[in-house]
Amino acid sequence: MLSNGATFDYSSARFSLEAIDFNHSKTVVLLLHARGFYHYLCHDNLYLGMDLHTMTNVLRCVNNDDSTTTEVDHHGDIVAFTFQDSVLDKISHFVLWLMDVERKPI
């Protein structure tokens, strides 16, 4: 079972997620390159700690064709996700508190 916290690392070239189990014996890494997206744009490098369970619930609200925008407030305390479905003309907005995490970029 994975721990609650996970690190999300955004850059202009890729997006990655890293999580470890409670015993710190196993690591899960997800790496998605920008070229794998239809459109991908990241202005600033971001390294964010988020609750994995909460993030999973948020991602359940995304459809395959939705556009996604991720924004961090200037204090670095919260992250906002906006999912826009142009077919249904629907916008969903979620705000999550960030967690403090150790910086270990992939």
Rank of each mutant, 00 (worst) to 15 (best):
L31E: 12
Q84C: 08
S11N: 14
F81P: 00
L46A: 09
H53C: 00
L2E: 06
V29L: 12
Y38F: 00
F81C: 06
T7I: 07
L88A: 15
E71D: 08
K104R: 09
T27C: 13
D65V: 04
Y47W: 07
M50W: 05
K104Q: 14
H24F: 06
D89H: 11
T27E: 15
L96V: 15
M1T: 05
A6S: 10
V29H: 12
A6F: 00
I91T: 11
R103F: 10
N63C: 05
L46R: 11
I78K: 13
D77E: 11
T82L: 06
L41W: 01
L52P: 03
S12P: 02
L41M: 09
M50F: 01
D9N: 15
N4Q: 09
W97N: 13
R35S: 10
H33T: 03
L30W: 04
S86M: 09
D66Y: 14
G76L: 10
L59E: 06
F37E: 00
S92L: 08
F22N: 04
P105N: 11
F83L: 06
T70M: 13
L48I: 05
V79F: 05
H93D: 08
I78R: 07
L52V: 00
N23G: 04
S12W: 06
S12C: 04
S3F: 01
F8Q: 09
S16P: 10
D77H: 14
Y38T: 13
S16T: 05
N4C: 08
F15W: 11
L46K: 14
A6Y: 02
D51E: 07
E18W: 00
G36D: 15
I78H: 08
T68G: 06
F37P: 03
V101A: 09
V72W: 00
A80Y: 00
L41V: 13
F37R: 00
M1P: 03
L30N: 05
F81L: 07
D73A: 11
L17S: 13
A34R: 03
N4K: 10
G49C: 05
L88E: 12
T68N: 07
M55W: 15
V87P: 01
D65P: 01
N64Q: 11
T82V: 08
N23Y: 02
F83Y: 13
L32C: 13
G76T: 01
D9V: 03
I20V: 14
S86C: 07
F8R: 04
L17F: 14
K104E: 14
D66A: 02
G49Y: 05
T70R: 04
H24W: 07
N57L: 02
K26Q: 12
V62D: 00
S25K: 09
A13S: 12
S86L: 14
K90T: 11
S25H: 09
G76C: 10
D77T: 06
S25I: 10
I106G: 05
